[in-house]
Design a protein around this nucleic acid. Sequence first.
DNA 1: TCCCGAAGTTCGATTTAAATG
DNA 2: GCATTTAAATCGAACTTCGGG
Lengths: 348, 348
Amino acid sequence: MVTIRDVAKESGFSSTTVSIVLNNAPLARYIPPATKKRIERAAKKLGYRPNLFARSLRSKRSHTVGVMVFDMTDPFCTLVLRGIENALYQASFLPILTDVHNERSRFERYLEMLLDRRIEALIVVANWLFVDIDVLADLEKSSIPTVMIGTELETDSLSSVIVDNELGSRLALEHLYSLGHRKIAFIRGPKTLSDSAPRWRGIRNFAKEVNLELDPKLIMDLPESREPISSFEVGYKLTEDLIKQKRPFTALMAFDDMTAFGAIRALAKAGLRVPEHCSVTGFDDVAASGLYTPPLTTVRQPMEAMGAMAAGIVVEGINAVLEKRAVTAAHRKMAPELAVRESTKSLL
Amino acid sequence: MVTIRDVAKESGFSSTTVSIVLNNAPLARYIPPATKKRIERAAKKLGYRPNLFARSLRSKRSHTVGVMVFDMTDPFCTLVLRGIENALYQASFLPILTDVHNERSRFERYLEMLLDRRIEALIVVANWLFVDIDVLADLEKSSIPTVMIGTELETDSLSSVIVDNELGSRLALEHLYSLGHRKIAFIRGPKTLSDSAPRWRGIRNFAKEVNLELDPKLIMDLPESREPISSFEVGYKLTEDLIKQKRPFTALMAFDDMTAFGAIRALAKAGLRVPEHCSVTGFDDVAASGLYTPPLTTVRQPMEAMGAMAAGIVVEGINAVLEKRAVTAAHRKMAPELAVRESTKSLL
DNA sequence: TCCCGAAGTTCGATTTAAATG
DNA sequence: GCATTTAAATCGAACTTCGGG
């Protein structure tokens, strides 16, 4: 490996000068262009690359951000990660990716490993997390800029980025309502998930506004579960139950896309075609939704933008710390968008 | 931050001794248990955590592996990443994730950044890569253990992990054949993709064995494209063309699952139901396949195992380098498995 | 005082060589 | 020579201090 001393020798200057020139440090102001040229040429000639370990040891900076996903197999993650990656790339940070598999022990071990590596910030993708107060405490005491994606927070030590769940479910219901649907079934999210309540609130509020009656018999709840994917099966099961009741409904609002897929399957099995016999909506707009038959009408979470937003927040946090400015937690609620496709149909 | 010197002071020994004890270095053999106890207690009391920058500077090790994905949005990635993550976790390595978006410039910049960080090995997920000889050269001269997932290689400086494409497509065709299908349409992969040729070979060979005639009119080719997702649309388009020809076929083998989804959509649009009017098979078994309506019969790539295998290979490579053993490139071809679901149906 | 450059210290851990009894 | 411990050198870059013109 070629070191700064090699460059010093090659160029005929001291390593101090080389360091100043190559880093364009304040002192470089005084160094004549000729000297700079010679040093730069020497560096290029030798193919000099600074040793980041040495640099980091001195500067205490790693230019690294920890990314902690609670369940990588959740299709929600993909685009969020893309958004994070891209924003960090612009800012010249590199992400260390960890997947805690929804396990406490893994969470702890990974958090420790990341902190040992002096990550400068942490992004937690916690959409399917049944928030544990302990986890938050661990995160808070890490004392580096941290943002959670997918879980609403009120702390002012941790930032958060979520989609506006209430608005999202309202958009979906509004859509069904405007299509003429009045008998609507609902599969709500698990109570323990922070998204569930606001999504239901959006529905209830809209229903009240337009005087739409919500039939309690047509409201089902997803049980708590560790696996996002499993909502497919539960969606299937609950829809079967819904059908068995023989209480007619012309539309079904599922908690998320996975649940919607399960519901569509159950409907198909029962001989009910979507959207001819029943309209179905989802939430998220995972990659598969647009490819599904029928393509799913759903509420799109701006996942890539959410990832980018989170990365932006932590980068700003890092800069604030560097410049000794006060770091204030940001809480962003991003607007969802209704993706109208073919799983919903007008009754009129 | 508490340093080794703090522990030395607290325990009453020198930092040398502390280092020896805490790392359980060879010399620790001579150190009496009582001393060890006192040092360990002091370390725990102060909450000492070694500074990895300093340690790495000395040891020249980073305990980090670079992971380079060519396109994160490819659904193939998710499970591969999970497999990599999990295997690295076992071995106490952390992955730095980069996504080159199929762009040369990003590839180069990221490779440089990773090398600067002294990653100890590199895993490249290159399933949708139109292999560029330049890229391989860049990778070879990096001189760290490197493995490519999803692209067949013969070099003995780079390892590779792929699925047995030839066997996979044979399994799918065998399945259709045994179901009684004789008029089969094919959508082959793009010529520039390394998976395409072996998959076709598997088909040709099996057809020859059982004397199945392959109608050239029923064979379509996916064009070259940068986006894995786009094969959905192209699959749709090509299937439309296939239908327009009015040349009957009872089954369609798509190059991959995305293409199959597109094909099913086109068939549905034309009033042809799957599998009643036409059986369809895919390749990959991405997460969406099992959730699809109908659930897709497809060739499963053992993605998680492939990721774990790749991680295993590089970890072994790292150890070999450490112990100054010769590093030989490994080339693993993993067995696929037919996932029979509901998109195929017997004609008999 | 301004300009240019170098010597020496520091970051925190590991390791070699050596000093004790 | 053996068990036990440590001073000092080292890794590579960055920064502080200083000196000469």
